[in-house]
Amino acid sequence: MSIQHFRVALIPFFAAFCLPVFAHPETLVKVKDAEDQLGARVGYIELDLNSGKILESFRPEERFPMMSTFKVLLCGAVLSRVDAGQEQLGRRIHYSQNDLVEYSPVTEKHLTDGMTVRELCSAAITMSDNTAANLLLTTIGGPKELTAFLHNMGDHVTRLDRWEPELNEAIPNDERDTTMPAAMATTLRKLLTGELLTLASRQQLIDWMEADKVAGPLLRSALPAGWFIADKSGAGERGSRGIIAALGPDGKPSRIVVIYTTGSQATMDERNRQIAEIGASLIKHW
Score class of each variant (00 low, 15 high):
Pro25Val: 01
Thr27Gly: 10
Leu28Thr: 10
Val29Pro: 12
Val29Met: 15
Val31His: 11
Asp33Ser: 10
Ala34Gln: 00
Glu35Phe: 09
Glu35Asn: 09
Asp36Arg: 07
Asp36His: 08
Gln37Gly: 05
Leu38Ala: 01
Leu38Phe: 01
Leu38Thr: 00
Gly39Arg: 06
Gly39Ala: 08
Gly39Asp: 11
Val42Pro: 10
Gly43Ile: 10
Tyr44Ile: 09
Ile45Lys: 14
Ile45Gly: 09
Glu46Pro: 06
Glu46Phe: 12
Leu47Cys: 03
Asp48Thr: 07
Asp48Ala: 06
Leu49Asp: 01
Leu49Pro: 00
Gly52Thr: 09
Gly52Ala: 11
Lys53Pro: 03
Glu56His: 10
Ser57Leu: 05
Ser57Gln: 11
Arg59Leu: 05
Arg59His: 09
Phe64Tyr: 11
Pro65Trp: 05
Pro65Phe: 02
Met66Tyr: 05
Met66Thr: 04
Thr69Lys: 07
Thr69Ser: 06
Val72Ile: 06
Val72Gln: 00
Leu73Trp: 03
Leu73Asp: 04
Leu73Ala: 09
Leu74Gly: 01
Leu74Cys: 02
Leu74Asn: 03
Gly76Ile: 10
Gly76Asn: 01
Gly76Arg: 03
Ala77Leu: 13
Ala77Ile: 08
Val78Ser: 03
Leu79Tyr: 03
Arg81Ser: 06
Val82Tyr: 08
Asp83Cys: 02
Asp83Tyr: 02
Gly85Met: 05
Glu87Lys: 05
Glu87Thr: 05
Leu89Met: 09
Gly90Thr: 05
Gly90Tyr: 12
Arg91Trp: 07
Arg91Val: 02
Arg92Met: 14
Arg92Gln: 08
Ile93Tyr: 01
Ile93Glu: 01
Gln97Ser: 04
Gln97Glu: 01
Asp99Phe: 09
Leu100Met: 14
Val101Leu: 00
Val101His: 12
Val101Trp: 00
Tyr103Trp: 00
Thr107Asp: 04
Glu108Trp: 05
Lys109Trp: 05
His110Gly: 00
Leu111Ile: 07
Thr112Ser: 06
Asp113His: 11
Gly114Ile: 14
Gly114Cys: 09
Gly114Lys: 05
Gly114Val: 08
Met115Ser: 05
Met115His: 07
Arg118Phe: 13
Glu119Ala: 02
Leu120Phe: 07
Leu120Tyr: 12
Ser122Lys: 07
Ala124Gln: 01
Ile125Asn: 11
Thr126Ser: 10
Thr126Gln: 08
Met127Tyr: 08
Met127Gln: 15
Met127Pro: 10
Asn130Leu: 10
Asn130Met: 11
Thr131Met: 08
Ala132Ile: 07
Ala132Phe: 12
Ala133Ser: 07
Ala133Gly: 07
Asn134Leu: 03
Leu136Met: 05
Leu136Trp: 07
Leu136Glu: 11
Leu137Trp: 04
Thr138Ala: 12
Thr138His: 05
Thr138Ser: 10
Ile140Trp: 01
Ile140Cys: 02
Ile140His: 04
Gly141Arg: 02
Gly141Pro: 04
Gly142Arg: 02
Lys144Phe: 07
Leu146Phe: 12
Thr147Arg: 00
Ala148Glu: 08
Phe149Ala: 08
Phe149Thr: 07
Asn152Ile: 10
Asn152Asp: 13
Met153Glu: 08
Asp155His: 03
Asp155Trp: 11
Arg159Ala: 13
Asp161Val: 02
Trp163Pro: 13
Glu166Gln: 11
Leu167Thr: 00
Leu167Trp: 07
Asn168Ala: 13
Glu169Phe: 00
Ala170Leu: 00
Ala170Gln: 00
Ala170His: 00
Ile171Tyr: 00
Ile171Trp: 01
Pro172Gln: 08
Pro172Gly: 00
Asp174Trp: 07
Thr179Asn: 13
Met180Ala: 12
Pro181Gly: 02
Ala183Met: 02
Ala185Asn: 11
Thr186Met: 09
Thr186Lys: 01
Thr187Gly: 09
Thr187Asn: 07
Leu188Gln: 15
Arg189Trp: 12
Arg189Leu: 15
Lys190Asn: 14
Lys190Gly: 13
Lys190Met: 13
Leu191Asn: 13
Leu192Phe: 07
Leu192Glu: 15
Leu192Thr: 04
Thr193Arg: 00
Thr193Ser: 10
Thr193Leu: 06
Gly194Met: 11
Gly194Cys: 04
Glu195Asp: 03
Glu195Tyr: 00
Thr198Gln: 04
Thr198Gly: 06
Thr198His: 05
Ala200Asn: 06
Ala200Lys: 03
Ser201Asn: 05
Arg202Val: 04
Arg202Met: 02
Gln203Tyr: 02
Gln203Leu: 03
Gln204Ile: 03
Leu205Pro: 04
Ile206Ala: 12
Ile206Gly: 06
Glu210Met: 13
Asp212Ser: 15
Lys213His: 07
Lys213Thr: 12
Val214Tyr: 14
Ala215Gln: 14
Ala215Val: 12
Pro217Lys: 01
Leu219Arg: 12
Arg220Thr: 03
Ala222Asp: 15
Ala222Pro: 14
Leu223Val: 05
Leu223Lys: 13
Pro224His: 07
Pro224Glu: 12
Pro224Leu: 11
Ala225Asp: 07
Gly226Thr: 11
Gly226Phe: 10
Gly226Leu: 05
Phe228Gln: 14
Ile229Phe: 15
Ile229Tyr: 14
Ala230Gly: 13
Ala230Asn: 09
Ala230Met: 09
Asp231Glu: 14
Lys232His: 13
Ser233His: 15
Gly234His: 05
Gly236Ser: 00
Glu237Trp: 04
Glu237Gln: 15
Arg238Cys: 01
Arg238Asp: 00
Ser240Arg: 14
Ser240Asp: 00
Ser240Gly: 00
Gly242Cys: 06
Ile243His: 10
Ile243Leu: 07
Ile243Pro: 09
Ile243Asn: 09
Ile243Ala: 07
Ile244Cys: 13
Ala245Pro: 10
Ala246Gly: 10
Ala246Trp: 03
Gly248Glu: 03
Gly248Gln: 03
Gly248Met: 07
Asp250His: 10
Asp250Asn: 13
Lys252Ser: 08
Lys252Glu: 10
Pro253Arg: 10
Ser254Asn: 04
Ser254Ile: 05
Arg255Cys: 06
Val257Trp: 14
Val257Phe: 15
Val257Glu: 14
Val258His: 06
Ile259Val: 07
Tyr260Gly: 10
Tyr260His: 12
Thr261Trp: 14
Thr261Cys: 05
Thr262Arg: 04
Gly263Phe: 04
Gln265Leu: 09
Thr267Gly: 11
Met268Asp: 15
Met268Ala: 15
Glu270Arg: 12
Glu270Ala: 11
Asn272Ala: 11
Asn272Pro: 08
Arg273Met: 07
Gln274Val: 08
Gln274Pro: 13
Gln274Cys: 14
Ile275Asn: 05
Ile275Leu: 13
Ala276Ser: 11
Glu277Cys: 05
Ile278His: 11
Ala280Phe: 06
Leu282Tyr: 14
Ile283Tyr: 05
Lys284Phe: 09
Lys284Thr: 05
His285Trp: 02
His285Thr: 02
